[in-house]
Computed example of a mutant assay.
Amino acid sequence: MSAPEVIEGDVAAGWAPRTWLGAPAPGGLALPPAAPTMAWLYSPRGVYLDDRHLVVADSGNHRVLIWHGVPEEDERPADVVLGQPDGTSEGPAAGGRGPEHGLHLPTGVLIHDGRLIVADAWHHRVLIWDEVPRRSGRRPDLVLGQPDLGSAEPNRGGECSARSMYWPYGVAVVGGRFYVADTGNRRVLGWAGGIPSSPDEPPDLILGQPGPAEREENRGEGVGPASFRWPHGITGTPELLLVADAGNHRVLGWRPHPGGDRGADLVLGQPDPYTAAEFPYGPQRADRLRFPYAASLDGDRLAVADTANNRILLWHGVPTASGQAADAVLGQPSFTANGENRWSGVARDTLCWPYGLWLHGDLLAVADSGNNRVVIWQRA
């Protein structure tokens, strides 16, 4: 049974924008410059935040930016750029220099145990630095999904296998297991021992497909609790794994974590695990999602980027029931609204296609992709 519709509620829940990183918005539009800078962004899709770092996948500029220290002033330039030779260059593979030198639409970013992890989606690989770089241009120490840094073919240039990737968009470490949202293969890969130590170390878990060679949408069948269309963001707790299945307009949850391929126990954004309807583009609800690309759970608070509805939904406790409605909404004046920038100009508290987010205590970093910026929100 779906949760009841919520028209008005705890709209901002004490959250307010604190820091704006990226292009300003003269005349109500936030546009990137003709040439990149270390301060401005172009369609960022991934973000990570902790006490000492902010990491942004500046996807449209095919680079990753790192701030050492959480920025507190607007438009502060980043300290480090990866994927480009300098802070004013752009283009896939470092402007055509090759995948060994650059990135192609990086999306997921993560720091875990002092290591930086980047999902280099259109190079069909995940890159790992053994420490967070403090200088620009440093090359990664390990590549997953490809045999070496110079290779960038989908599924290693062959058929889908346990060791190959096709558009990996999301990365996470949850409950000690390292996860990759292998989006183009419509599956999630998991390594129980944590981050692999070599490119050839296969995952012990393939979730969403019946075997390592299969890659069809929704397993080639109708949507169900064990299938994906576009798995993207991954988050959770040691007891709960959550995957944002953007193409099916839902978030799936497994409690406990799956030891093998099995159906989810929880679904958010849809009335049941067999429904994947896109809720009509009109008045929205607190229990529906449209293309949710990211989710972040910290403590007992869950945030989901409800991307096509131009809003962030918040649950004040870890959801326990399928169809559970959100408790608060950011970026819109109510749960029913969903306009890009509220059908007005760009303001500090508006959103336009938020693709990525990261909850860290009372801070929430949002990759507000359509507005070419990252905004750090703070809870009073």
Rank of each mutant, 00 (worst) to 15 (best):
G282N: 04
I128Q: 05
S2Y: 02
H53S: 04
V329Q: 04
S334I: 09
W40A: 15
D368V: 10
Q284P: 00
P154D: 06
R348Q: 08
G260M: 11
G150H: 08
A39H: 05
H104A: 11
V126E: 14
I195L: 11
P33D: 14
R139N: 05
S2I: 09
E216P: 00
H257A: 12
P17R: 12
F228K: 08
P92H: 11
L41R: 07
R301Y: 00
L363R: 15
R45F: 06
G28Y: 09
H316P: 02
I206G: 12
V132G: 08
V80E: 07
T37N: 06
L142P: 13
P256L: 03
P133K: 07
T307V: 02
A34K: 11
A12G: 00
P354S: 05
V70E: 01
L364N: 10
H257M: 10
V251F: 03
N310Y: 06
R250V: 01
G194N: 02
V180M: 07
A121P: 01
A35I: 08
V173M: 01
W315V: 02
G98K: 05
G260K: 14
G137C: 09
A347G: 15
L49T: 07
E100M: 11
V374H: 11
Y166L: 15
A276R: 10
S151E: 13
W315K: 02
D74R: 09
G22I: 13
S334E: 03
G14C: 08
S344T: 15
A367Q: 04
W377C: 12
V174T: 03
